[in-house]
Simulated assay, not measured.
Amino acid sequence: MNVLIVYAHPEPRSLNGSLRNFAVQRLEQAGHTVQVSDLYAMNWKTTLDAHDFPSRDADARFNPAAESGHAYANGLQREDVAREQDKLRWADAVLLQFPLWWFSMPAILKGWFERVYAYGFAYGVGEHSNQHWGDRYGEGMFAGKRAMLIVTAGGWESHYAQRGINGPIDDILFPIQHGMLYYPGFDVLPPFVAYRMNGIDDARYATVRDALGERLDALFTHAPIPYRPQNRGAYDIPALTLKADIAPEKTGFAAHLQDQITADRAATDRVTEEVE
């Protein structure tokens, strides 16, 4: 299988650099083909701005989504953007590896999403009607592909627990996993998060490395996070709020997760539809 690692850390001799090298080796030993987009090494342009669209009318008001859609549809994108899109088409699985900085990803990785996720490519696709509000949240360009976060954090695991001071790690990562990955169709695996990484010793590093190896070995077999698909009956369209009888006791991020029985049934139904 083809695996793309999108990697965001400025120091190749860092803990993240070591884990990235280990991940590539482990995946290749398992027979996978791996590409790495090392954003700092690539000197990736972080900002989405008018300079991304040299063919646009310089006197016109800049509309990022409209310019993105026009460039994508007409083969006018910058080469670096088009190249990353080709990698996403090629990949069967995408790994995003980064340190948790200020409760999110480094700016360079956010900029990768903003520039690579062009209108008509990762969003703005599919029918928009009172029955189907675009191909997204379970549908879209990346449906059938897998994605997983590999995240390092300086805080303790207890700091990111349900009652931890930093907030639950699943809530912190929800905008990335649900909004950036599930939105355009990826099956998103539970994240691999390594805590308390500052000053890690050799013994703990070996433990983290081995745990990551186990997750990589299960990259194509581990059950994804059971997010609710948008267009399969759980949401009122076009309001896109959960129907009153769906998880009425839940609010917030947790409401958008199916219980495992429902998730298994939905997966079976989807396979049946594909076979038919």
Score class of each variant (00 low, 15 high):
P248Y: 05
D210S: 15
Q131G: 12
L212T: 12
G213V: 08
D202R: 13
M197Y: 02
F53W: 08
Y205L: 09
N2Q: 15
R56A: 10
P64C: 10
A58W: 13
W101N: 11
D92Y: 00
S55N: 07
G144W: 04
R89Y: 12
Y160D: 02
E114Q: 03
P106W: 05
R232A: 05
P99V: 04
L181N: 01
F220R: 05
T251Q: 08
Y137W: 07
N130T: 12
A255R: 01
R146K: 10
Q35H: 13
F186H: 02
A71L: 03
F220V: 12
P224E: 04
R78F: 01
V24Q: 06
T221C: 08
D217W: 00
H132K: 14
M42D: 12
I225W: 02
P175K: 09
T251D: 15
H159F: 06
W133M: 12
R61Y: 13
Q230G: 02
V6Q: 01
D202Y: 03
L96W: 11
W44Y: 09
R89E: 06
M105F: 02
E114K: 02
D80W: 03
F98H: 03
A107N: 13
E127T: 11
T241M: 11
R265Y: 06
E139W: 02
T251C: 07
V24N: 02
N2L: 01
R78D: 14
A194F: 10
A71T: 06
D202K: 12
T221A: 14
H256Q: 10
